[in-house]
Amino acid sequence: MCLAVPMKVIELKEGGAGVCELENTLYEVDLSLIESVELDDYVIVHAGFAIEKLDIEEANERLQLFADLAETYKDQGKVG
């Protein structure tokens, strides 16, 4: 029940409501617990509520680190 997943905000409605998308499925999400949310933001959704925004810069940095690790690993000839 604690599962919380990143979803993309695709519609903002009145009263803090919104619609988010995950893998082509749309979900009604309550956005009242997060500050200054905008269209196309990624939010972490838990029990129908967005509980935090995803910091895209931080996420990209981490992805870059993983990509680099994979690259180095490959370069060392460890993948046959």
Partner: peptide
């Protein structure tokens, strides 16, 4: 990107 298996091997 968070499931890249080569990165997993490296870590």
């Amino acid at each position: 990107g968070f499931r890249n298996h080569l990165a997993a091997k490296a870590i």
